[in-house]
Design a protein around this nucleic acid. Sequence first.
DNA 1: ACCTGAACACCGTTCAAGT
DNA 2: ACCTGAACACCGTTCAAGT
Lengths: 235, 235
Amino acid sequence: MTTQTRTPLSKERILGTAVALADEGGVDAVSMRKIAHALGVVPMALYKHVQNKDELLDGMVDAVVGEIDPPVAGADWRTTVRERVLAARRMLLRHPWASRVIEERTRARPDPTPAVMAYMDSMIGIFRAGGLSIDLTHHAMHVMGSRLLGFSQELFEDAADPDAPPAPPPPPELAERFPHIAELVMGISHDQGSVVGPGCDDQFEFEFALDLVLDGLERRRRQDGRVASSSSSST
Amino acid sequence: MTTQTRTPLSKERILGTAVALADEGGVDAVSMRKIAHALGVVPMALYKHVQNKDELLDGMVDAVVGEIDPPVAGADWRTTVRERVLAARRMLLRHPWASRVIEERTRARPDPTPAVMAYMDSMIGIFRAGGLSIDLTHHAMHVMGSRLLGFSQELFEDAADPDAPPAPPPPPELAERFPHIAELVMGISHDQGSVVGPGCDDQFEFEFALDLVLDGLERRRRQDGRVASSSSSST
DNA sequence: ACCTGAACACCGTTCAAGT
DNA sequence: ACCTGAACACCGTTCAAGT
């Protein structure tokens, strides 16, 4: 009905609308019918620019992975990787649906999408330039794999909202069934100012894990140098 | 039509059928209608034992998490955690749909399901008994979070099937666009017997990452002892 | 030749009608 | 009072009919 009809449909416009819908309403808000409706178009019109929904999801993945800030030049490998991963995390926080879709689509396709390939290629290049052996770089990519795309971690999920109600103290029945969880929740609370825990600082926890992994890789790199790659590890 | 009608419907029977369907056909094979059909029952009959599909998925999560072998007694914390995580991985390999569903449902619920809580409680107990501080245990749980449930990692996904066709050498066009990936693929191939890489040994890569993390936690634990928890880290 | 509406084969779930 | 079939509001996608 609007003048939107002027603007011709294109894959970019479709992907942009799909990403916007996902950002607003989660991945369930992305359907061929809803995208078409948002564009003032009949559902079947989308199939001129996109083969099917899987290809649409691949396009969304490429769009957001392409948003990740490029690596900054001039620092050591550890800093460069760290910044790049934190940039990836910022993208994932902007698009909460993305980690799920990236994982799903990467699993479903024979190869990752081009932007994901480019991201991986760049990351491998940083490791290699930093002096990691091919073997160690390969292991490093696997280690980062579960991390750099930020899957899960929030097993506690205490709601990041700082204005949330103070969260009821753990019911005594929980303390009885799960004493160690209860101790942890209490302990975390005491370490901080507030009486009952305001939940976890996800950014801190993410960086803790990232640094733990980077420390380990740097240690392995130095060992590699000393033992001249005597271990013929698998793959 | 069969004598199945004799066996009364129960939540256990429904969950067992749902898990079997998922094991065979993936998570898409799990629908209220298909479960009902497999049980020789009308779809609405399921709603007597299960409030809705989300509750069914929660039940499936609890069923498979409950399958994880309990911790073995008498070893140091590092070995105990290692064995437990490898047991979790074995469960995830038996039920390839599980990591996705566990993540989805854990994200959607206010608290994890009871079996997941029990698993976490047990894991926390192992860390604490091993001498990790409450703070460090908390960080450790976050670090393990993305790992112990085994999300992702397979970014390469070279098909674990050892009898797969030798995999075509990377097309020269790929080597041009993604030189670092190409180098890695070639390098991995050379390190092994075969001419072109047979893909990754996922079990090896998993254990490499796990040991990297456990090494890092053990190191932090020893540091903690020396500095008497001077760092008042967030959460 | 192009576009598109109706239709197909699915969903989870509601609800009223039948026993 | 209980059970259940039809119906509702959705899906992605096919395909034939209309321009």
